[in-house]
Design a protein around this nucleic acid. Structure first.
Lengths: 244, 244
DNA sequence: CGACACATTGAAGAGCCTCAAAAAGGGTGG
DNA sequence: CCACCCTTTTTGAGGCTCTTCAATGTGTCG
């Protein structure tokens, strides 16, 4: 007997709220409209007005802004269980672009479906808005990192955060995780040059802290990394007012 | 006959949506619980769980995160008409601190008041959420600036954005605006040292672009600044789905 | 007048970038 | 199965941006 397949989003939310059968059902119904995107082809372009949001079920996506001078800044990565374009569907045209980093499976969520689910299951709405708020906190932390951490601490912090996010959906642990990003992705996300990213990774490797190689991140010294990065996962673990 | 005093928030929202008398009334009722804060004393501390949000009616506030090493990163400034702690009241304990830069007048908004206003005037809810979404877009733009703009462009962009925000509530124009920030504030916001901020300001002044002095910003060459900063106010002006 | 916060300037050095080139996969077609 | 291309990683050298440290100037307030 095959168990009902649990989506990564369900897994993530369940780590923070005990959802009822009804809520779980509503959540799974949001996953009906399955779509695929190939690596490299933008899912949403900057300035495009979005009709739908997506729940990522497999693959990695990055959201970024392009500068007139050709450089880009990656604002955030989406991993399975993450929402994508949630804000733009509710309120405005998208102000960044989304690019699948590998082939992606996602569930398309129409505004109407989302509002209906929210109306019928308010606790689910709270849970999803909590997840959105957590994403926002990550952007703020990202801002702090770029503004006030040097390259090594920034990298360490980034890898730790990524590991924590993936662990929540069963795709990583304190030992390490699979990671399809290139050093160019890291550079565009961390506000560094690709060359410097390489040097920073070498330094972290030679200090026995972490190895980034062949699509896999190995955390050799978790505690050491946490100390180096001043990593405080409070902004990720927050359970807050959800337990009502 | 004295006209009804219009709050800066009302003024800001009215620039984007035509609000009905009923909606305007609900908005003004949110301003009942007036409070004052003195410059320098934190309004909300990092980690504190917030019971209320505030609508800023006079004065400037900054929201920031403190690093364990003592440096701080200012995430955003709030000027009259801006919400403060809106997210934390809805969903989570605050993950940054708020500090009044000058003496501040604000209206305390309880969660219950807000939810009631939202329920009774959905269009007002949309308008307020739109404003929140705009704030988020500003954080993203801030991230891009720190990650991918050099110090001069970053400063120019920041001053232009600030001017545009203030113009919306009648406190600035393309000529300039009053600004109580110190160069230390600029440094903490832009991810620079205070010393370098000073040099950058000098450079901008000597190029005849902008003067930052004695609490006043004078934009001598608006178009020149826009070009230097690659300033595209699209993320601020977005009217989007509000006009329904 | 002295105390304090803020602004300004100089000098020296660290961190990160750019340019340049080579090595190491990974896939594709012959 | 190999030759080839393209992407990604790696390394070196030199230079520019921004930082740190230190000192002086300026304005305000008790």
């Amino acid at each position: 007997m095959k168990p009902v397949e649990t989506s990564p989003l369900t897994r993530k939310l369940s780590a923070f709220v005990a959802l009822s059968e009804i809520e779980l059902g509503a959540l799974e119904r949001l996953h009906q409209r399955r779509r695929s995107f190939a690596a490299g082809s933008d899912m949403v372009h900057q300035g495009q007005s979005a009709q739908a949001a997506y729940i990522l079920s497999a693959g990695w996506v990055c959201s970024y802004k392009l500068q007139p001078d050709g450089t880009r800044q990656i604002v955030d990565f989406q991993v399975p269980g993450d929402f994508l374009g949630l804000r733009s569907v509710l309120l405005r045209t998208s102000d960044h672009s989304f690019e699948p980093i590998v082939d992606v499976q996602a569930a398309e969520v129409l505004t109407s479906d989302l509002l209906e689910a929210f109306a019928q299951t308010p606790r689910l709405a709270t849970a999803i808005l909590w997840a959105a708020s957590r994403d926002e906190a990550m952007v703020v932390e990202h801002l702090v990192g770029i503004g006030r951490r040097d390259a090594v601490a920034r990298m360490a912090h980034f890898l730790l955060e990524l590991g924590a996010r993936l662990a929540l959906v069963g795709m990583g642990s304190k030992e390490g995780f699979g990671c399809p990003l290139t050093q160019y992705h890291l550079a565009d996300a961390l506000g560094l040059s690709a060359v410097h990213v390489n040097r920073v990774l070498r330094q972290l490797r030679e200090q026995g802290l972490v190895t980034f190689r062949d699509g896999h991140v190995t955390l050799h010294d978790y505690a050491g990394l946490v100390a180096l990065a001043d990593f405080d996962p409070a902004y990720l673990d927050q359970t807050g007012p959800l337990l009502t």
